[in-house]
Simulated scan of single mutants.
Amino acid sequence: MAHKFEIKKNKKGEFVAYFSYNGETMFWTEGYTTKSAAKNAIESIKKNGPDAPTDDTTD
């Protein structure tokens, strides 16, 4: 699979959700105290992300 979400622990011991494409990390979430909170973040991204607008502020 070319893209995936992965949950890892950071140095603080928090759970972080990473999104990778072709093995390269594209973005990650903030750290969460529980794994279920990181899973909820992934579900929120899947639900709300596809219709998110692009805001180009490079003008």
Rank of each mutant, 00 (worst) to 15 (best):
39 K>A: 02
33 T>V: 14
17 A>D: 00
24 E>L: 09
30 E>T: 14
28 W>E: 09
8 K>C: 00
26 M>L: 05
34 T>W: 06
8 K>T: 04
33 T>C: 00
16 V>C: 03
7 I>H: 05
42 I>D: 08
50 P>Q: 01
1 M>A: 11
37 A>F: 04
21 Y>E: 13
50 P>V: 01
59 D>K: 13
16 V>E: 01
13 G>Q: 15
43 E>N: 14
7 I>T: 08
14 E>C: 05
36 S>H: 13
35 K>T: 03
38 A>S: 01
36 S>T: 12
3 H>S: 15
43 E>M: 12
23 G>Y: 04
37 A>W: 03
3 H>T: 10
32 Y>H: 15
23 G>K: 03
33 T>E: 15
20 S>F: 07
15 F>M: 00
59 D>R: 09
33 T>M: 10
1 M>L: 07
25 T>H: 05
28 W>V: 02
31 G>Y: 09
48 N>H: 11
25 T>Y: 10
39 K>G: 01
52 A>K: 10
14 E>L: 11
51 D>P: 00
30 E>P: 00
31 G>D: 03
58 T>F: 07
8 K>F: 00
23 G>R: 08
8 K>I: 10
52 A>T: 15
46 K>D: 09
22 N>M: 10
38 A>E: 00
33 T>Q: 15
39 K>V: 14
58 T>R: 12
16 V>F: 01
56 D>E: 12
58 T>I: 09
24 E>S: 06
33 T>N: 07
